[in-house]
Amino acid sequence: MASAPKPLTGTKVLLMLVAFFGVVIGVNVTMAKLAIATLPGTDVDSPYAAGLTYDREISAAQDQAARNWQVSAHIERRTDGGVALQVEARDASGQPMTGLKFDGRLERPTDKRADLAVELPEAGIGIYRGNAASVAPGQWDLVIEGEVRGERVFLSRNRVILN
């Protein structure tokens, strides 16, 4: 003889609803905690301060363009997983420029926490070289800044893909 199915009672319905909403709330709390823990932050700390410096950036870009310098960068993946970066700087007449201070940065477009600084000491007349260890594959922004006596005179930002 087949036994009769158990009746659906108010207690069973209540337990099913509590279990359902408990799972939904648990998943939402977990996802919110993971989203907050992996948030890379903002692109700039203060948009207001960035807006105030906008005119200076435009003026610096115009000054840089007027200098007509020829600055080229070459980035190459090494076999140990790092990268080698070389910057060659020439003035408007094509002569190598010495005595500049170049700094390089590899910036992850999606996560500022992965940014890497690359020191670029002068390795020859007008040639600046540096290395970065353990660079993950993917897209990076290569930022090169040149200074003379503490004043930034050159800025370049280029997207590169490192495999």
Rank of each mutant, 00 (worst) to 15 (best):
A2G: 12
S3P: 04
A4H: 13
P5L: 08
K6T: 15
P7C: 09
L8Q: 09
T11Q: 15
L15C: 07
M16V: 15
L17N: 07
L17S: 11
L17Y: 10
L17M: 14
L17G: 09
V18L: 13
F20V: 09
F21T: 03
V23K: 08
V24D: 11
G26N: 13
V27R: 08
V27P: 06
N28K: 14
M31D: 12
A32R: 12
A32S: 14
A32P: 03
A32M: 14
K33W: 09
A35G: 12
I36F: 11
T38A: 14
T38Q: 10
G41N: 05
V44K: 09
S46W: 04
A49Y: 04
A49E: 08
A49N: 07
A50H: 10
G51R: 07
G51A: 13
L52H: 08
T53G: 13
T53P: 08
Y54M: 15
Y54E: 10
D55H: 10
S59F: 10
A60V: 06
A61N: 13
Q62V: 11
D63E: 12
D63Q: 14
Q64A: 14
Q64M: 14
Q64P: 05
A65Q: 12
A66K: 07
A66V: 08
R67P: 06
N68I: 05
W69A: 10
Q70Y: 12
V71K: 02
I75C: 09
I75Y: 10
E76C: 14
E76M: 14
R78V: 07
D80Q: 12
A84E: 13
V87K: 01
V87G: 02
D91F: 05
A92I: 11
G94S: 15
G94A: 14
T98I: 08
T98M: 07
G99L: 11
L100V: 07
K101F: 04
K101P: 00
F102I: 04
F102Q: 02
F102Y: 03
L106P: 02
L106T: 03
R108N: 11
P109W: 11
T110M: 09
D111K: 03
K112P: 06
D115G: 04
A117I: 11
E119F: 10
L120T: 02
L120Q: 00
E122A: 05
A123E: 05
G126Q: 04
R129D: 00
G130N: 01
N131D: 04
N131Y: 02
A132S: 09
A132Q: 02
A133I: 05
A133F: 12
A136G: 03
P137R: 04
P137V: 04
W140K: 02
W140S: 03
V143I: 15
V143G: 05
V143W: 05
I144K: 01
E145Y: 00
G146F: 02
G146S: 04
V148P: 00
V148S: 05
V148C: 01
G150T: 02
E151K: 06
R152I: 02
F154W: 01
S156E: 03
R157H: 10
R157I: 01
V160L: 08
